[in-house]
Design a binder for these strands. Structure first.
Length: 482
DNA sequence: TTTTGAGTTGTTCGA
DNA sequence: GTCGAACAACTCAAA
């Protein structure tokens, strides 16, 4: 009889189309699915608070799904190498498999881990899973990685995407005896403060929740209307697949496959599908960038930005985090983030621009807050997004592109519905003033029951002034580099 | 090697 | 209200 195979699961919490799990099942011996709780395996970026909330539930769903197939999830705490070897020893496993990740710390550690386990006599195999293409497979003609999105996108269109999906195994053979396992509830993954109380209103972590989110996006017209509605934060205009993709509850291949199949079947216009698929390739771009430029998780891609005159504005940062900047669209976004673990992407850009360009707070501080509060926190996407906003990343916004929080509110939340939902103290302010209550006549504010500085903050900075300061700072940076 | 065209997401100003 | 131009200079990708 074939010896058992240990499957190390991380950000691939699903049974369908999971290459490592598939390989273990296909080896025809027993399979030992393992999740190891070891912060060290993530380098400087162990899962943040919102991610831990998600993980708790996703692991529970995975365990259920494995039990339905005659298996279960073994959860261990401690050093990854030690625990994998211990689990293998306890079950008589001779081979260990996992799907690859591409964050700098994981790449480095996995390489050492594989060497150490091989040295100890285990057969170790790793699999491509997380991306549509490995980051080292899609390169420019000169063999270097892409630094601009559009050419990468064209390359993906040229090369195409392999979308053959591995079916979920119907049954997974159990070892003769299961090794010890920690209870998922004992991992301490839920926040101790009552913070995530409203998360379940919006999210269903786990593989079946992920499948439903994708079916909904394709079947209910989210993808169809994506290009028109994705920028309106008060609509359900985006797929909200990001946390599911981050935790690997659904594969990017699966998303690509289902969307392109809907086009082939005539259920979806190609013109509608393309902008949606583009976003998946942004995810690929972010991962490729971080893989090839690992220092960017903490340092600007453009080194001249080391000299940028950032400010340690702790009070400004705190006001931003709590949604009390006095700019309604910014505050609405930050409060949506706190209440739901997510923020609409259009608003992410607005709040990020505000922190970085109006308050001149270093982008790393914003990235750290997002890391802790987003259920879809993903190192590659988060890093790229913040560097893009700050102007120090790949394909970065020109320095003069500074979002005006009032204009953005008027353009993308014209009715004020988004602001009113998340900043209820402004609910009765008329549309005309909803995005700049400080400009409203005093009798209008009084009628709306708003006393500025009491019920809702005065703006903590004057945007026009802040814009000029930021422009001057960016300009000096350019002059200094000459 | 050189050249050329292009580059996610904006704002403001003046006609 | 609408429209086009200006806002820098640079890097990137590909011919």
């Amino acid at each position: 009889m074939t010896a058992p195979t240990v499957v190390r699961l991380r950000l691939d919490l699903r049974v369908r189309d999971n290459p490592a799990l598939r390989a273990a099942v296909d080896a025809d011996g027993p399979v030992v699915p393992v999740w190891i709780d070891d912060d060290a395996q993530w380098g400087a970026w162990p899962p943040g608070g919102a991610s831990r909330w998600w993980l708790h539930r996703s692991l529970a769903r995975l365990d259920e799904s494995l039990r339905d197939r005659g298996s279960r999830l073994i959860v261990r705490r401690g050093d990854v190498a030690t625990e994998l070897a211990a689990v293998a020893a306890a079950t008589g496993a001779e081979s260990i498999v996992w799907n690859r990740l591409y964050e700098p710390a994981t790449v480095e550690r996995d390489k050492a881990l594989k060497a150490a386990l091989t040295e100890r006599g285990f057969a170790v195999r790793t699999f491509a899973d997380r991306l549509l293409h490995e980051p080292w497979d899609v390169l420019k003609a000169d063999g270097t990685p892409y630094r601009v999105f559009t050419p990468l996108w064209r390359a993906y269109q040229r090369v195409g995407v392999e979308t053959e999906l591995a079916a979920a195994p119907r049954a997974i053979a159990a070892p003769e005896a299961w090794p010890d396992s920690v209870a998922i509830d004992d991992l301490g993954f839920d926040p101790t403060i009552d913070w995530a109380a409203r998360f379940p209103d919006r999210w269903t972590p786990g593989e079946s929740g992920a499948s439903r989110a994708l079916s909904h996006a394709i079947g209910e017209g989210v993808v169809e209307r994506y290009d028109d509605e994705r920028d309106q934060p008060d609509r359900y205009g985006t797929s909200r697949l990001s946390p599911h993709l981050h935790f690997g509850e659904i594969s990017a291949r699966n998303v690509w496959h289902d969307v392109t199949r809907a086009v082939t079947n005539g259920d979806l216009a190609e013109d509608a599908a393309t902008p949606f698929l583009r976003q998946l390739v942004w995810r690929e771009f972010a991962h490729s960038l971080l893989y090839h430029e690992p220092q960017t998780e903490s340092e600007p891609l453009r080194p001249e930005f080391e000299a940028f005159p950032w400010r340690d504005d702790d009070a400004g940062l705190a006001a931003w985090q709590r949604g009390k900047t006095g700019y309604p669209i910014v505050d609405a976004g930050m409060r949506e983030l706190w209440a739901t673990g997510w923020m609409h992407n259009r608003v992410r850009m607005v709040v990020a621009s505000f922190l970085v360009k109006d308050l001149l707070v270093p982008w790393q501080r914003g990235a750290a807050w997002f890391w802790d509060t987003l259920v879809d926190a993903d190192l590659a996407n988060n890093t790229m997004g913040w560097q893009w906003t700050a102007g120090c990343g790949a394909d970065a916004a020109p320095f003069f592109r500074i979002y005006n929080p009032v204009r953005q509110g008027e353009r993308f939340d014209a009715s004020g519905a988004y602001v009113r939902r998340w900043v209820p103290e402004l609910a009765d302010v008329p549309d005309k003033w909803i995005h700049e209550p400080w400009s409203a006549p005093s009798d209008v504010l009084a009628a709306a029951g708003v006393r500025l500085g009491h019920d809702y903050p005065e703006p903590i900075v004057d945007h026009a002034l802040a814009r000029d300061v930021a422009l001057a700072s960016y300009k000096r940076l350019g002059d200094g580099a000459d």
